[in-house]
Amino acid sequence: MQSDDPFLQALLAELRMLLAQLLESGESGQIDLLRLPMAPAQTEALRALLGQGEIVITLEAEGPSRIEETRLSGVWWVEHHDRAGHLVARLLEVAAVPEIVPAAAPDIGASLGVLSGEDAGKAET
């Protein structure tokens, strides 16, 4: 994957490093795209460069989020919006599954409580 833009080249190099780290140690990594001095056109160019993978996840929690797999398996394009629809975070996440997606143990415990007829709040505490 190549780009003429030196800024995007540097980003791709970091992605390569994070992917190698994920493969070796299983440790996930993120790049915060909102805090980088990118022109809107650069963000679009990066999005186009990374392409679209097979999975798209939408998340509704205090506003919509969209988690898209890119053409690079293990690299996810994550965008969080608030309830007003404003973008509050744009990340590149390098992981098997983005951290926010899997159900967490306390929440699973709460579900178990619901099915067992108990109060959900008790299972959590």
């Binding site: 993120q30 805090r35 929690a61 969080h80 608030d82 509050v88 975070a89 990340l91 996440e93």
Partner: peptide, 18 residues
């Protein structure tokens, strides 16, 4: 997840690593 989202936005805003 909503809290995690907020935390991600806060980390972005605080210039902390995500």
């Amino acid at each position: 997840r909503a809290l995690l989202k907020f935390a991600a936005a806060a980390a972005t805003s605080l210039a902390l690593p995500p």
